[in-house]
Design a binder for these strands. Structure first.
Lengths: 204, 204
DNA sequence: AATGTCAATTGACACCGTGTCAAGCGACAT
DNA sequence: ATGTCGCTTGACACGGTGTCAATTGACATT
């Protein structure tokens, strides 16, 4: 038993690169991070990066997948999936994202920035967003089935609205610009989502 | 009377550059527009651009100001300012932005993209957003003064929420990705904003 | 007609960041 | 000793921004 498991001291190079990447992305807020920065942080030459990742975009998308794994996105998703009412599911989903986004923000931001101009990055990001849309759809359909969806909103627009509400740029704006804390974000977005989606009757 | 007024056939070069810039930005959706593209569209050499605008960023910000003027942003703002209730003001403000954003989108997008990495562009964009926040504040304070603001939301979070809701990336996502029409956007965002901000009692 | 001025032109170049290529080197295995 | 794997150094092409110098052509001034 040994060298190819979780937190062994000397991980293999690709792993060390990914670790260095998220470390630096987290620190810099994903801003103008260059391949040479990542190389220096990893402790290898810039060219060696290309021995393991074909391009900056590929490295970035690998880094987001890596972070998802490290943070156990799938396991975290479970509670929301097992919720027994749409209302509960909505609350759990928002709480999940509100706690998840801060941890992936650095990497996500870098990917979003690369998105402009780079078709590969754009579609990598699109995939993530589509996955998140499915979560929104599940919630809205559950609410609709329970007859608790606001009569003012059809199912599709409701999905779109919730999906949009939870997008990263909104989280970014509210927490970075408006100064909301993680807890405030979760609490207030949950409130807004409830008012937006639920029948006026039973919002309390 | 004559050469230095509105739509004279042969405008001066800076104006022709701005016209060409918005034309091409509109067409390309603000994506990867280069200085050489703008020069070609204007019908002058790339270097000549720098005779009139010190940098790409400066040209871009000048272009957004120019578009604002052309579209008469100030005049358009008037109806909302003269609204006699917070509720009315909210509706007019959203309608204004819903009709305004599509016209500035190309240029705005280019500025938003430049924003990443370029401090000058970032602050130009920040200014615009702060102006828009003032509009949101006016609305929320009016609602609060009338006692119609939802008891679930304090004034400041209410301003932040409305401000965030109306951000360009949300408009972009709803219209470009979700496929909402301009009218749908205005109608539904108005609805959402009302449910978010107004006391449950009198939302109808 | 000679002169100056001004806008624009051409062509060259520096700087940066990404991505590519070739040659070399040390450690480890066979 | 031979190979080969992972990495190194150093060089370079490309594309985009921004700068510089020398030149041209049109229009006024005298």
């Amino acid at each position: 038993m040994s060298s190819e498991s979780e937190q062994s001291k000397a991980a293999d190079t690709p792993t060390r690169i990914l670790e260095a990447t998220v470390r630096i992305l987290e620190a810099e807020g994903g801003k103008g991070v260059r391949m040479s920065d990542i190389a220096r942080e990893t402790g290898i030459s810039r060219q060696a990066l290309y021995l393991h990742f074909a391009s900056r975009t590929e490295l970035l998308t690998a880094a987001t997948r890596w972070v998802d794994e490290q943070l156990g996105l799938e396991e975290r998703l479970a509670p929301s999936r097992h919720a027994r009412s749409g209302e509960e599911r909505l609350a759990l989903y928002i709480e999940l994202w509100g706690n998840y986004i801060p941890d992936v923000y650095g990497v996500a931001k870098a990917l979003m920035l690369a998105e402009a101009g780079d078709e590969a990055a754009a579609s990598a990001w699109r995939d993530r967003m589509l996955a998140m849309k499915d979560g929104c759809r599940a919630i809205v359909e559950m609410l609709a089935a329970e007859g608790r969806l606001s009569p003012l909103l059809a199912v599709q627009p409701a999905i779109d609205s919730l999906w949009t509400l939870m997008l990263v740029p909104n989280w970014e704006h509210l927490t970075q610009v408006c100064g909301w804390s993680r807890e405030e974000y979760i609490e207030r977005i949950t409130l807004i989502a409830r008012q937006m989606l639920l029948s006026p009757a039973d919002q309390v």
